[in-house]
Every structure is written in C-alpha cells, then in structure tokens.
Design a protein around this nucleic acid. Structure first.
Lengths: 252, 252
DNA sequence: ACGATACATGCAGAAACGTGCAAGAACAGG
DNA sequence: CCTGTTCTTGCACGTTTCTGCATGTATCGT
C-alpha cells in the first residue's frame, strides 16, 4: 500500500464515517499506529482534518473538499492562486479563464467573498457551484476538449456581452519578447476577447511558464496590468519583464 | 517492449486499478524500476498521473470521484440512463438536461459513440470532457446554483441557436394530469426551450418521480415523445400514462 | 491520583529516489 | 557500408523518505 494511497484512504474514511480511530485503521490496514498517527498529523497540518485524541475528525466540512482538492494542485499554482484571489474586490466581477491555475484561483476564493464570476470553463463553473456567495455566469460555445473551455465564434460573441473589473488569464508561455503565448489559436483569440472585457487583466504564470513561448500570441505586454508568478523575483527573465514596465506580483 | 507501449500500459493500469506500484510493474514487465520511474515522471510532467512515493496515482481526483459517485448513483437512475443512452443515434445530436439522472446518462454514453452533446450544465460538460468521441457544446447564461445549470434569458437565447435529434429532460414530477413539472419557473422555461429545439424529447423519470407533481409545468404530454422510467410497467400511474398515449420505455 | 492509553521524538534499517555514466540500439548522412 | 549522433536503458552511487520500535511525556477515564 502506497503512503499517498493510505492518505487518500484516510480522507475517504473521514468523509464517509465522519471520524477516524487510529487504532482501528492501523489494524484494518495492517500497519503500525505510528504511521497512522503520522499521516493524521500531516493531514491536520494541511488543514484536511482535525486531530483529536485517539484519531481525527473532519475539519469544517467546507474546508475538507476545498483543501483536499487544493492539495492536488502543485505548490506554485496554489501560491499564485492565493495572490490572484486576493485581487478580487468584494462585490466585484471577475472573468476567470480555464486551466489548472485558474481552477486553483476558483478554489482559493474566500468562502465569504461575494462576487460575480464569469467563465468559459465548465470545470471552473462546476468547482464554484458550492461557493456560497459567488454569482456565476457561464459563457457558452463549442468546447475544446484539450483545454476544457468554450472557444470559437459563439463563445467570443457571448464574451462580448459581459464586462468585469478584473480578468485573470492563464497562458502557457511568458516571454519578454514573444509576450504572452498559448498553444492554440482559438484559445488565444478567446483569451483576447476575455481580456478586452475587463478593466484590468492579470496573468497567472507559475514559474515553469516564465521564459518560454508557444505558437500563438495572446496579448502584448501593454494590454496586461500585471503578472502573478511564484518565480524568483530576481530571476533574469523576471527582471527583464520588470524593465519592460510589467508589474510583477510575487507569490510566495 | 516499446517505450510508448509501456506508457500505454501504465495509463491503462492506472485507470483499471487506480494506482501503480513501480516495483510491481517493473517485475511484471521485466524491466528495471528506473525505467518505470522515468516513465511515471514523464507522465506526471504531462499531467497524466500524480507521482507519489512508491508509484503513482491517477492525476485527477475526478477519476476516483467518477467511480465513487457512479457507485452511489441509485440503481434506478443507472437503468434509466442506460436506456436513454441507447436512444442516441451514432453521429446524432443530443440535448442533455442537468441533474443527477442526466449526469448518469452522460456517463452511460458508450465510449465509442460519436455524437454531439449540447448542454446547459457545466457538471454534465465536465463529466463528458473525457469522452473520446463526443463533441460538446455548452449553452451559457446565469448559473442557478441549486440546480447547477444555466438558466434565464441568455441561456434561452443560446438554446434557440441550436437544433438536435433528441432531447433528454429530467423533471421532478411526472403526473397524468399535471404533466411534467419542476420546482423552479426559470428551470421550467429553460427545459421548454431545450425541448423545442429537438425533433424528439424523452423524459428521464426514476420511479420516485412517478405520480408526483411540482409547482411549475414544463411540458404537456403532447410535446414529449416518451418517458423512460424504471417504475413497474404495471404500476397504476404508469398504466394511466399509457392510456393517455404516452410511450413508456421501461428500464430494467 | 493512578493506571491505561495515546502521543511526540529520536533512531535505524529498508526502500525509493535522482543523477551521472556507459553500453547498446536506432537512425541520418556521407 | 561506415560513422557520428541521439535516444534509451540499466547500473552504481549518494541522498532522501518511509516505517516500525523504543523511550519518555501528555492525556484520558475512573
């Protein structure tokens, strides 16, 4: 049995039965109580359960799947998402792109933040269904499966009917000269259409995107308000971007 | 054994068993653990799996979720969904409503069925993202959280731009006199708009809906092609519906 | 207050890991 | 047919991580 698998098992057990007794689980899985305790300690440290004498209880239910799913997102994306989520003003309107980093943003939106989220990603929409305060507006169109977002003429047209305070875009390449790029022309067009409908546009760029470029240009630097990244602020490329006048919001 | 072949094998194993233990696979295939580790590292880099100590787990918790929720879907809904999915002609276009029964239909669509699915539910859309053949079209609009579907003026307008061979609708009430009903006026209007865009409309009605009525009328019996239900075909209400000329497709 | 149980910590062996390296296969170009 | 290059694969090495046990401490129920 894999360690990570065991962790999953514990979370499942917690969700199903509402509690965990360390001793029982250890016997059930045929491992030492020490390992169970260690796992529970780790889970509790991540906020995924509440440690109690003899075992563990679920953290507040909302927190559980929030944090559990949060857990699957790489650390860098989580940090970027947290900074991005903090940019959303209470009562404001946010256009949220698709992609895993944007998904992390959706999950990072505080549960008590009342706002309107506009998205062309069914995945993002589904993730925000259980947000208690967020108003949701879905942009329809043909779904591009590889990126799981609506693109194409219908989607662009739908985008033109909305306006927002803030647009958060994910891209696959962030390069001083090439600008912001992505791998698909339709997606690039869609991202442009979204950015055009918001007062401010910020780019979500986990560190591995920095300094790379893809086939299609999304936007030039002039059109974006800033870049949110977990890359080292003294990284050479990041410094170059700053020199170009790009506002860089560090995430860590 | 080719490297790509090995990669396929790993993905298949992951899908079938839900986990990979590097050591076991290495022994099974007669290759070194190093190669397995390298493969897993590559797959993880492509986001196709999640690397953990000792092996790997499926990338998206969705996979686990999928199986888990699939399991919790009551037997009745699964049966209804299977019959409904069989109505979709190869190459045809399906308008699929939201709701848990419709979700079961989405999951029941054969993996080798090429078809176009139009839906106003981000949940349905997300569930169909990994369908290898289905073309997806999303109807946008304001999301009604309690039912998790797009409704309202924008959604109805979007619906009017499409046409389909078949529409599968979920309802909350199926009653001989009251007809097909649901609890929300906006939703009822949306369902009407969807039904109007398809040549045939079938109703998904697990047995507990039969004989009940809700506040808002969706459609009269004349506008539907048939009813798919797992209720006893000799049930009094079902017999009544048949007497009214409703085609009843039994599911069991 | 006391025994029993659960706990945190340190430790050691085992397992898994990443990396560098070299042998071999596949392949393109001459 | 030969040669140089690239890619893959397995092995060796040092490092990190996991796990169970032992120890001493904290907490619980009575």
């Amino acid at each position: 049995m894999l360690a990570a698998e065991r962790r999953e098992h514990l979370l499942g057990l917690l969700a199903r039965e509402g509690k965990i007794v360390a001793k029982d689980v250890a016997a059930e899985l045929g491992i030492s109580e020490d390992s169970v305790r260690r796992d529970l300690r780790d889970l509790a440290a991540d906020g995924l359960c509440q440690r109690v004498y003899g075992g563990a209880l679920p953290a507040s239910p909302a927190v559980v799947d929030y944090a559990a799913r949060q857990g699957v997102a790489p650390d860098g994306k989580r940090k970027v998402a947290a900074v991005a989520a903090a940019l959303v003003p209470p009562g404001g309107t946010l256009i949220l792109d698709g992609g895993t980093t944007a998904l992390a943003v959706a999950r990072a939106l505080p549960q008590d933040l009342a706002c309107t989220v506009i998205t062309h990603s069914p995945t993002i929409a589904a993730a925000l269904l259980d947000h208690p305060q967020a108003e949701l507006f879905l942009l329809g169109g043909r779904i591009f499966k590889h990126s799981a977002v609506a693109c194409g003429a219908a989607a662009v047209e739908a985008a033109q009917q909305v306006s927002a305070d803030l647009c958060l875009l994910g891209v696959t390449g962030v390069h001083p000269e090439a600008g912001l790029t992505t791998a698909d022309a339709e997606e690039a067009a869609m991202k442009r259409a979204l950015a055009a409908r918001a007062a401010d546009t910020y780019i979500l760029a986990s560190s591995e995107k920095i300094g790379t470029a893809s086939r299609f240009r999304v936007l030039p630097w002039e059109k974006v308000s800033g870049l949110i990244t977990d890359a080292d602020p003294h990284d050479a490329v990041v410094e170059q971007l700053k020199a170009l006048g790009v506002e860089v919001l560090p995430a860590d």
